[in-house]
Design a binder for these strands. Structure first.
Lengths: 232, 232
DNA sequence: ACACGCCGATTGTCCGACAAGTAGACGCAA
DNA sequence: TTGCGTCTACTTGTCGGACAATCGGCGTGT
């Protein structure tokens, strides 16, 4: 089981490629995506391009109003805060449940060790194992829907990161220490403590993200995602 | 603001109508929905029918495998448990946060009063205000994503209910009492207690639903949604 | 300066067509 | 009878072209 291959339809492939281009930053937030553009760039029929765009708007990777061209989503500080709030709700409750049975998922330990290792060798490509730490905690509950929801939130976090092209700086050593602390609290059965710790842990990341996303203007197109109409 | 009218495109209307037909039970679980059927029944082009079906599969109202015709989703006991578990995670954490500030949303009180009123006059159309009680608690946090996630779960609960055509029976008086208890605990600042109470409250509903969904076979087509291959 | 109307670009919807895949019916052989 | 291969009808996936509706901008006339 779990053979890596999957049959992908054409629009599946389109969706995947476009989504990847968005999270990688190749398609900056606010970039308009015309059906014709997509269809010609990939050499597919407009119907297919259209389907892909529609699916991505369903996933909230793109946004589009009636009769207007789809654009890559732009996430502002308010969005970051909302994402992290929701994330905190879900994850802290999960920590409580894990603490009840004192289960410390092995995958979480490994992910944290990986962060430490990367830090030791001077690399800053931390975001991936960091995500893995958190998702492995959630996934250890084996609830399809809980996992799906958390993953969708994690994806939005990735989108945020894509917007500020790796400018944010949070020190790996603090992260590793806090992760370890959380795992210890779970093992000790202190759900309340673990939840509190997580709250703090995520709050720091959240404010850092929100600040760098809203404080300084990006290289171009300081389009605020919020409903604030830019005074013309 | 909040003028009721919304501009709906054709496929939007299709999606809405089909979704409504599914939650109302008019389209039973497992019913196949051919693109051609939909396009002819509504007298629209196949492309439009196709788009509607695709969006509904994205919403998990329909399911479809590669090259096979879409079917109305069938939810089994395992799904019910998963839905309620996720629901409990989200909602209990929300209760804790509400208890921190002792905020009791007025809408929740009203919804509960409405249940009581309906019960007093002998009606059993309780599920709607019951849903409103819970969603108003969530919505009082004003977190777009948290609300969206909870609403999607609530929708799945409605799907479950649609499957057993109003056969389930949970006594309104217990519901009202437990709701009131939860609100009281929030007002008292006892988040832990409120969460525990909710846990119990939802567990009862969950097991009732799961039992009536899995215990007896439906009128026809006892297709188990789970991966369990029916011993042939 | 302001209202108005036209125009290009883009979306929304339709039609018809064909390849490819699935599932069930059919028939043939052991 | 049972098992297996084949064939066929139905359905999906994708294409191309077509046209009305809509939006935003530009120029024009008053």
């Amino acid at each position: 089981m779990a053979r890596g291959i999957v049959v992908t339809s054409l629009v599946d492939a389109l969706v995947e490629d476009l989504r990847e281009k968005v999270v990688s930053g190749e398609l900056a937030p606010g970039t308009p995506l015309t059906e014709l553009e997509v269809s010609t760039r990939y050499d597919v029929a407009r119907a297919s391009a259209r389907a892909a765009i529609e699916r991505l708007t369903g996933e909230k990777v793109l946004v589009r109003a009636n009769h207007k061209t789809a654009r890559v989503i732009t996430l502002g500080p308010e969005d970051v805060r909302d994402i992290y709030r929701t994330r905190t709700y879900l994850e802290s409750e999960v920590l409580r449940r894990l603490a009840l049975t004192r289960q410390v998922p092995a995958a979480a330990c490994e992910a944290n060790a990986e962060i430490a290792a990367l830090w030791a060798e001077g690399s800053y490509a931390i975001v991936d194992p960091d995500m893995r730490f958190h998702t492995s905690l959630i996934d250890s509950l084996a609830s399809t829907r809980t996992s799906a929801m958390y993953h969708s939130l994690a994806f939005e976090v990735k989108l945020c990161m894509a917007q500020l092209q790796g400018r944010q700086r949070l020190s790996p050593e603090i992260i590793v220490a806090e992760h370890a602390r959380i795992l210890a609290l779970i093992e000790a059965g202190d759900g309340e403590g673990a939840a509190a710790m997580l709250d703090e842990h995520l709050a720091r990341a959240r404010e850092l993200l929100a600040a760098s996303l809203g404080g300084e203007a990006g290289p171009e197109a300081s389009v605020p995602s919020s409903a604030l109409p830019p005074t013309p």
